[in-house]
Nucleic acid binder design. Structure first.
Lengths: 232, 232
DNA sequence: GTACTCCATGCTGTATACAATGTGGCCTCA
DNA sequence: TGAGGCCACATTGTATACAGCATGGAGTAC
């Protein structure tokens, strides 16, 4: 039996807004709201059974994280990522991650354990049973973020995380492509190999290939989707 | 004669919080508040003669922009950038800007006018009369952001701007170094030269040298400052 | 003198009331 | 019939009241 004023929000969060943020992010990522959907404060107040203060705060956070678009003195709307923006984010990833592998291949001080763990994981994935798209997308994200972590630059890692959060939607599309899983495994193992061999140029090339393949998959998938929606 | 309830905030901002944000940023950048200084909402309410709502919003924005540090359920404090964080930010700059010059040197489509304008500006600065540190820091920032703009990646430009905002304090330190102005001019002109010559490796090297010199200046200046403050 | 408890205080977190702004529809007038 | 002005409504911006958490100091036991 639910009491009238019971909170919908998960208890593991100290503040209401933080909980609202994660819930909304999750809902947006799972297409619960269509792009361009209008979000009003009052509506969310009812949905979460809280007052406007935490809802407002959550919306501001979502806006800076790029999940919703704020229109001053009007409402918010679920952000529609256009093709160009996605390409741009993939390029920023490229910039950051090429730097990461270069750093790792140049001075690999205390990161050997991280690299070794990744090697085990992705060798296992290459030979193991197939996984769900969403899980692969998550593991792929984890691979790239682990490398960034190993580079020791916390600021860079934070930026990369923010980008990956926004791209998660499209990474899932990426892994819907057949054979993408196997090719990702091989590419990831390549990257690790070059890092361990301290081959900077090779590591950069391997990383570039990996990211560009993802970008191309997403690009064509979205163009197909647009073409289909126009023809309807 | 000031009326009792007159606003201190500038009128060019639609919202109070936006005005508070820029004012506080400016004050923090000009050492109005010492690092670690505690900022309470009530105090700022009095200072700006507004209620807690816009002040709270402003503080959240400043926290995500890295100017203040939020301590949940406690107050905020003016962020003290330690040496490691600054180094990290310089590395993120490096990652982004190496990508930018590579892009510019590879496919320089419609950016010729931007590049040419920068060339004029910095040739003039090399031969012209000396400028103030703060103005040089501003011009330097502008140089790097113009290149990012010319690369056409709006997301990357936004990230770079955010970083530069945080680093402005230290860029001014950088240009306090004698001869830094002249060497910056030469390095900037070098970068432009290699871009126009479509020499990717040269452009990358030149950009790296320029950024690293700034980083080293800041590094030694801060270490000196710390040493002095410990000996007092 | 030290460590522990408890409470007062200051501050943020949340709720709600009021002000201001933008939008859409209706009405009027040419 | 079409354009422009005006008003009502929906929604955000701002102010304020109340709740709850965190800290530090007084007081007490040992």
């Amino acid at each position: 039996m639910t009491r009238k004023n019971e909170r919908i929000v998960s208890p593991e969060f100290s503040s209401l807004s933080a909980s609202i943020v994660t819930t909304l992010k999750d809902q947006i990522l799972h297409w619960q709201y269509p792009p361009e959907h209008r979000l009003t404060e009052a509506e969310l107040c009812k949905q979460f059974n809280v007052s406007r203060s935490p809802v407002r705060e959550a919306l501001r956070i979502l806006a800076t994280d790029g999940f919703v678009q704020r229109m001053p003195n009007r409402s918010y709307r679920v952000k529609q990522h256009n093709l160009q923006e996605i390409e741009e984010l993939y390029d920023v990833r490229l910039a950051l991650e090429l730097f990461v592998v270069e750093r790792l291949a140049t001075r690999n001080d205390a990161v050997q354990s991280d690299i070794a763990a990744l090697k085990r994981t992705w060798t296992g994935l290459l030979n193991g049973s197939p996984r769900k798209d969403e899980e692969l997308a998550r593991l792929d994200t984890q691979f790239h973020e682990t490398l960034a972590h190993a580079s020791g630059n916390k600021s860079l890692l934070r930026q990369l995380r923010a980008i990956n959060e926004r791209l998660m939607l499209f990474r899932i599309i990426d892994f819907a492509k057949t054979h993408r899983a196997a090719s990702t495994c091989r590419q990831h193992l390549d990257i690790l190999k070059y890092i361990l061999a301290k081959n900077v140029a090779g590591a950069r090339k391997a990383m570039q290939k990996n990211i560009e393949e993802g970008r191309n998959n997403v690009h064509s998938a979205i163009k197909d989707a647009l073409a289909r929606s126009y023809s309807m």
